[in-house]
Design a binder for these strands. Structure first.
Lengths: 356, 356
DNA sequence: TTCGCTCCTGAAAACGCTTACAGAGCCCGC
DNA sequence: GCGGGCTCTGTAAGCGTTTTCAGGAGCGAA
């Protein structure tokens, strides 16, 4: 034992052979006792776990991964962590993976195609056992990189055309349509949209489609300048709203592609002297908690980010373990009615607002 | 070549031997050509990279890690990703690591000591080349686990008593003191604080200390019920503020331990019919962008989260590469004055006259 | 032309663990 | 009492790279 301690001190860290020696068994037994406890006699198992604990044995993940050809890590390829909605999803994903004894490798692509492919390549090199993707719109190169037999799930969508991967998410278009119908029901007819950049972002595109579909039901259409596509940020939302308000015939309601945009829109409206929702209705998409308590609280679509993360973790863990994963059910993305929507103001005397 | 392709198809993925064979060189040369291009003849290097590209060679991270005893991954042990301030830091950390060709392994502990130790253990098993820690207050068990020679940095603090690790961050106490002095300068004398839970959270504790210190300079003290310690959440902030307002002699200003608490406080104040900042001043800590544009916009302390992430990445990358890391400089955490602070309201009619 | 150096490349030994595979007990039934 | 079958442990062969070490080629100088 003292001799073993010496060896360990020299080498820096206890190895499986040290544990084997200390427990008086072979390395194979140590491996078995630690990895599948049932396959070993209780007394031996105790001897081994005991020795392992005494020596502070941790194990070498690389060696384990190499020998077992499983890394015990999942990868998440997300647009960014800087948006709380993704952070919430990844946080939940990680926690659930942890419960499965799996680690999380994160690659964020920053809405950039090249970075995305690079991120995936890195994840693959690291030998992840599965991958969480956001959305199904990716570069051909990215798809080509993805080994067909590697467990992977697409989140944030309920289904994706021509994508064989399981989808864990909700129906963006339907949700966008629902919130638009709410505006329609309120009596709005001139409805604008500040959407996310649809290029390479199928969720953003689907939301536009949904709004368009709902509008079509009412015989309305959506096109620039009433449709603005902007990067997801508060500043862009502000700018877009300002542009909308500068129109000769501004909309009475604006549905936004996400909460950041909506918040920016709110700021711009206030800056323009407009009261929300009296003068202008605004809706969001995500349901960030800060905006739920704002003044006025934002009417928005609730995105089940954490739930997606948890389900993705369960799904991938099952897949990686060779088990049958739970069938991916469509998640709810309910409209949550709060304070930023109301019937349109009565027709104003002058087309232009009083103050600017 | 066709033969090689066949082998690869059978085995699933191209290995270094396939590349070697395709390029007509030894595996050693392939390894060198790919890892340190300068150590190999240009023509051979081209042959190798060419073959690697043709075969879609990615490399096996586990094998590489095992042989080189470096994993090429850094670990981040954070309280949670669900708070945008940490998410922003980790996002920046990841991006910068990526620039160094390093991957990110995330473990979030959820402000739970046991989970934290478990998370660190996982990171260590995975063989990370370095670790980002938030704060220096950790379980003894956690510290014991951390190999003394493993590169690690503490973020979110400028320095930590009795902690030898490099600190990359700002001075929580000083920043809290500064924002408190701002309140004092405005004329507030009855100042409350809604702090984070200080137990096991040195940042939260330092902020309390800072407020206390500033108050002491003015001959004031801070103690319950004027000091409330609450978990970092909007709801807790609300509840705490409600309690503060229910006091016989409520504070005229409240400094909050973070922006979530401050936002909750704002909500509670509004609910109580109080105008901020006219009737009550509130300050935050973090500078989340949503609150910068709120109504009123929050006066708060700006926390350089992204900058900490970037510097931590650079520092760890240098350490892991055996280079001299840049000396960790103290980061700025400036008070940003916005709309939630103002001089105290003139003495209200009802309560007994306050001391001058 | 030959010797000595330097620069490159290849052969082969780790790296630390998992996992067939096979051997050794052991119990039980006949 | 003995053989068969079963369970449990140990032996050893990889897993796919990196890296050390040594050999070989090429070049310049004598």
């Amino acid at each position: 034992m003292g001799e073993i301690a010496y060896k360990i001190a020299v080498r820096g860290r206890a190895g499986i052979r040290d544990v084997a020696e200390a427990a008086g068994v072979s390395v194979a037994t140590v491996s078995r006792a630690l990895n599948k406890p049932d396959s070993v006699t209780p007394v031996l198992r105790a001897r081994v776990t005991d020795a392992a604990r005494r020596l502070g044995y941790l194990g070498n993940g690389a060696a384990r991964a190499l020998a077992s050809r499983r890394s015990g890590a999942m990868g998440a390829l997300v647009p960014t962590l800087d948006n709380p909605i993704f952070a919430a999803c990844i946080d939940a994903f990680q926690q659930r993976l942890d419960a499965h004894g799996i680690s999380l490798l994160v690659a964020s692509a920053g809405y950039d195609a090249a970075a995305e492919t690079r991120g995936l390549r890195t994840l693959l090199q690291r030998g992840v056992d599965g991958i969480l993707l956001v959305g199904a719109a990716h570069e051909p190169e990215t798809w080509a990189l993805l080994p067909p037999d590697l467990p992977a799930v697409v989140t944030w969508m309920h289904r994706a055309e021509g994508c064989a991967l399981p989808c864990i998410g909700f129906d963006n278009a339907a949700a966008a349509a629902r919130i638009t119908r709410h505006l329609l029901a309120l009596g709005h007819r001139r409805i604008g949209m500040i959407a996310g950049l649809a290029r390479g972002n199928d969720r953003a595109a689907a939301r536009i489609d949904g709004v368009r579909a709902a509008l079509a039901e009412a015989g309305l259409t959506l096109a620039p300048p009433l449709l603005a596509e902007r990067a997801y940020s508060v500043a862009e939302g502000s700018a877009a709203m300002a542009a909308l308000l500068a129109l000769p015939d501004p909309p009475t309601a604006v549905v936004c592609g996400n909460d950041h945009l909506a918040f920016g829109a709110l700021v711009a409206a206030r800056r323009a002297g407009l009261a929300v929702p009296a003068d202008l209705s605004v809706t969001g998409f995500d349901d960030l908690d800060f905006l739920a308590h704002g003044d006025p609280p934002l009417t928005t679509v609730h995105v089940p980010a954490a739930e997606m993360g948890r389900r993705a973790a369960d799904h991938l863990a099952a897949l990686a373990a060779g088990k049958e994963p739970p069938p991916p059910a469509e998640l709810e993305a309910p409209v949550v009615l709060r304070g930023t929507t109301a019937p349109p103001a009565r027709r104003r005397a002058t087309p232009r607002r009083a103050r600017a």
